[in-house]
Protein backbone atom coordinates (compact mmCIF):
# COMPACT_ATOMS: atom_id res chain seq x y z
CA UNK A 1 0.00 0.00 0.00
CA UNK A 2 1.36 3.39 -0.99
CA UNK A 3 1.60 6.39 1.30
CA UNK A 4 -1.22 8.18 -0.53
CA UNK A 5 -3.52 5.19 -0.23
CA UNK A 6 -2.85 5.10 3.49
CA UNK A 7 -3.66 8.77 3.96
CA UNK A 8 -6.84 8.39 1.89
CA UNK A 9 -8.04 5.73 4.26
CA UNK A 10 -7.24 7.90 7.25
CA UNK A 11 -9.40 10.70 5.85
CA UNK A 12 -12.33 8.40 5.12
CA UNK A 13 -12.68 7.06 8.61
CA UNK A 14 -12.11 10.42 10.26
CA UNK A 15 -14.73 11.87 12.58
CA UNK A 16 -17.71 13.44 10.82
CA UNK A 17 -18.86 15.35 13.92
CA UNK A 18 -16.34 17.33 15.93
CA UNK A 19 -16.49 19.56 18.96
CA UNK A 20 -12.98 20.83 18.16
CA UNK A 21 -12.17 23.47 15.53
CA UNK A 22 -11.99 21.88 12.07
CA UNK A 23 -8.48 21.56 10.68
CA UNK A 24 -9.10 22.68 7.10
CA UNK A 25 -5.43 22.79 6.12
CA UNK A 26 -4.80 19.36 7.61
CA UNK A 27 -7.83 17.82 5.88
CA UNK A 28 -6.92 19.43 2.57
CA UNK A 29 -3.34 18.19 2.83
CA UNK A 30 -4.68 14.65 3.14
CA UNK A 31 -7.10 15.07 0.22
CA UNK A 32 -4.68 14.90 -2.70
CA UNK A 33 -4.85 11.78 -4.80
CA UNK A 34 -2.74 10.64 -7.76
CA UNK A 35 -5.85 10.15 -9.93
CA UNK A 36 -7.46 13.46 -8.99
CA UNK A 37 -6.71 16.63 -10.94
CA UNK A 38 -9.35 18.62 -9.08
CA UNK A 39 -9.85 19.13 -5.36
CA UNK A 40 -12.77 21.27 -4.16
CA UNK A 41 -13.01 22.40 -0.54
CA UNK A 42 -16.20 24.04 0.68
CA UNK A 43 -16.06 25.75 4.05
CA UNK A 44 -19.33 26.87 5.62
CA UNK A 45 -18.29 29.77 7.85
CA UNK A 46 -20.13 31.67 10.57
CA UNK A 47 -21.19 35.19 9.46
CA UNK A 48 -21.40 38.12 11.86
CA UNK A 49 -24.90 39.05 10.66
CA UNK A 50 -28.14 37.47 9.58
CA UNK A 51 -31.03 39.53 8.14
CA UNK A 52 -29.83 42.67 9.82
CA UNK A 53 -29.16 41.07 13.20
CA UNK A 54 -25.66 41.10 14.64
CA UNK A 55 -24.59 37.53 15.30
CA UNK A 56 -22.41 36.97 18.34
CA UNK A 57 -21.82 33.24 17.82
CA UNK A 58 -23.61 30.04 16.83
CA UNK A 59 -24.15 26.89 18.76
CA UNK A 60 -24.64 23.60 16.95
CA UNK A 61 -26.39 20.55 18.34
CA UNK A 62 -26.43 17.13 16.69
CA UNK A 63 -27.98 13.79 17.28
CA UNK A 64 -24.50 12.45 16.95
CA UNK A 65 -25.10 8.73 16.48
CA UNK A 66 -27.43 9.35 13.55
CA UNK A 67 -25.63 12.36 12.11
CA UNK A 68 -22.24 10.66 11.80
CA UNK A 69 -23.77 7.62 10.13
CA UNK A 70 -25.83 9.71 7.72
CA UNK A 71 -22.86 11.85 6.67
CA UNK A 72 -20.88 8.65 5.95
CA UNK A 73 -23.77 7.34 3.84
CA UNK A 74 -24.08 10.62 1.92
CA UNK A 75 -20.34 10.55 1.21
CA UNK A 76 -20.45 6.93 0.05
CA UNK A 77 -23.40 7.57 -2.23
CA UNK A 78 -21.71 10.60 -3.79
CA UNK A 79 -18.50 8.65 -4.13
CA UNK A 80 -20.21 6.03 -6.24
CA UNK A 81 -22.31 8.45 -8.24
CA UNK A 82 -19.45 10.77 -9.26
CA UNK A 83 -16.58 8.29 -8.94
CA UNK A 84 -14.87 10.43 -6.35
CA UNK A 85 -11.29 9.70 -5.39
CA UNK A 86 -11.76 11.54 -2.11
CA UNK A 87 -14.89 12.53 -0.21
CA UNK A 88 -14.60 14.10 3.22
CA UNK A 89 -17.07 16.00 5.39
CA UNK A 90 -16.91 17.25 8.95
CA UNK A 91 -19.41 19.30 10.95
CA UNK A 92 -18.74 21.21 14.15
CA UNK A 93 -20.93 20.97 17.21
CA UNK A 94 -21.00 23.26 20.23
CA UNK A 95 -20.11 26.94 20.19
CA UNK A 96 -18.65 28.23 16.89
CA UNK A 97 -17.31 31.78 16.68
CA UNK A 98 -17.80 34.27 13.85
CA UNK A 99 -15.31 33.54 11.06
CA UNK A 100 -14.84 29.94 12.09
CA UNK A 101 -15.72 27.00 9.92
CA UNK A 102 -18.90 25.16 10.91
CA UNK A 103 -18.83 22.55 8.15
CA UNK A 104 -16.29 21.43 5.59
CA UNK A 105 -16.74 19.26 2.49
CA UNK A 106 -13.84 18.14 0.32
CA UNK A 107 -14.19 16.29 -2.96
CA UNK A 108 -11.47 15.18 -5.35
CA UNK A 109 -11.95 13.83 -8.88
CA UNK A 110 -9.98 13.56 -12.11
CA UNK A 111 -11.69 16.72 -13.48
CA UNK A 112 -13.24 19.76 -11.80
CA UNK A 113 -16.84 19.47 -12.96
CA UNK A 114 -17.56 16.34 -10.94
CA UNK A 115 -15.68 17.67 -7.91
CA UNK A 116 -17.84 20.83 -7.85
CA UNK A 117 -21.11 19.00 -8.53
CA UNK A 118 -20.51 16.33 -5.93
CA UNK A 119 -19.39 18.90 -3.37
CA UNK A 120 -22.57 20.94 -3.83
CA UNK A 121 -24.71 17.83 -3.62
CA UNK A 122 -23.03 16.67 -0.40
CA UNK A 123 -23.35 20.02 1.41
CA UNK A 124 -27.01 20.38 0.36
CA UNK A 125 -27.87 16.95 1.69
CA UNK A 126 -25.99 17.54 4.93
CA UNK A 127 -27.85 20.81 5.47
CA UNK A 128 -31.27 19.38 4.68
CA UNK A 129 -31.23 15.85 5.98
CA UNK A 130 -28.69 15.32 8.73
CA UNK A 131 -29.95 15.92 12.28
CA UNK A 132 -27.78 18.92 13.09
CA UNK A 133 -29.27 22.19 14.30
CA UNK A 134 -27.91 25.66 14.81
CA UNK A 135 -28.93 28.21 17.37
CA UNK A 136 -27.99 31.80 16.62
CA UNK A 137 -26.95 33.96 19.54
CA UNK A 138 -27.25 37.66 18.76
CA UNK A 139 -25.31 40.61 20.14
CA UNK A 140 -28.48 41.95 21.79
CA UNK A 141 -28.67 38.82 23.96
CA UNK A 142 -31.51 37.12 22.07
CA UNK A 143 -31.28 33.71 20.43
CA UNK A 144 -33.05 31.84 17.66
CA UNK A 145 -33.08 28.22 16.54
CA UNK A 146 -32.41 28.09 12.82
CA UNK A 147 -34.42 26.27 10.18
CA UNK A 148 -32.67 25.97 6.84
CA UNK A 149 -34.87 23.15 5.77
CA UNK A 150 -38.57 23.82 5.42
CA UNK A 151 -39.02 21.62 2.36
CA UNK A 152 -41.92 19.91 4.13
CA UNK A 153 -43.95 23.12 3.74
CA UNK A 154 -43.90 22.49 0.00
CA UNK A 155 -43.54 18.72 -0.27
CA UNK A 156 -45.96 18.04 2.59
CA UNK A 157 -43.66 15.34 3.98
CA UNK A 158 -40.79 15.85 6.48
CA UNK A 159 -38.95 13.00 4.74
CA UNK A 160 -39.19 14.52 1.24
CA UNK A 161 -36.88 17.33 0.21
CA UNK A 162 -37.32 19.63 -2.73
CA UNK A 163 -34.32 18.33 -4.65
CA UNK A 164 -35.68 14.79 -4.37
CA UNK A 165 -38.93 15.71 -6.07
CA UNK A 166 -37.27 17.97 -8.65
CA UNK A 167 -36.99 16.56 -12.15
CA UNK A 168 -34.30 18.98 -13.27
CA UNK A 169 -31.41 17.39 -11.40
CA UNK A 170 -30.21 16.63 -7.94
CA UNK A 171 -29.94 20.17 -6.61
CA UNK A 172 -32.24 23.15 -6.34
CA UNK A 173 -31.61 25.84 -8.93
CA UNK A 174 -29.59 28.52 -7.13
CA UNK A 175 -32.12 31.41 -7.42
CA UNK A 176 -34.96 29.24 -6.19
CA UNK A 177 -32.92 28.06 -3.28
CA UNK A 178 -32.01 31.58 -2.18
CA UNK A 179 -35.58 32.73 -2.40
CA UNK A 180 -36.69 29.64 -0.54
CA UNK A 181 -34.21 30.06 2.31
CA UNK A 182 -35.04 33.74 2.60
CA UNK A 183 -38.72 33.14 3.03
CA UNK A 184 -38.10 30.56 5.71
CA UNK A 185 -35.79 32.78 7.67
CA UNK A 186 -38.28 35.60 7.61
CA UNK A 187 -40.99 33.31 8.89
CA UNK A 188 -38.92 31.97 11.82
Amino acid sequence: MTASALSLQAVEVSQCISSEPLDLAGLLAKSHHPLAGAVVLFSGDVRDNNLGNHVDYLEYEAKESMAAKMIQEILLEAKERWNLNIAVAQHRIGKVAVGECAVVVITATPHRREAYEANRHIIDRIKHEVPIWKCEYFKDGSKKWGGNCNCHDITGDPNKHLYETSTSGSDLPAPMKEEFTGSITRRV
Partner: peptide, 10 residues
Protein backbone atom coordinates in the same frame (compact mmCIF):
# COMPACT_ATOMS: atom_id res chain seq x y z
CA UNK B 1 -37.99 7.54 20.22
CA UNK B 2 -36.13 10.60 18.98
CA UNK B 3 -38.08 13.55 17.66
CA UNK B 4 -36.03 15.28 14.98
CA UNK B 5 -36.93 18.87 13.97
CA UNK B 6 -36.01 20.08 10.47
CA UNK B 7 -32.23 20.30 10.12
CA UNK B 8 -30.35 23.55 10.00
CA UNK B 9 -26.75 22.43 9.82
CA UNK B 10 -24.08 24.21 7.84
Amino acid sequence: ISIIPPSSGG
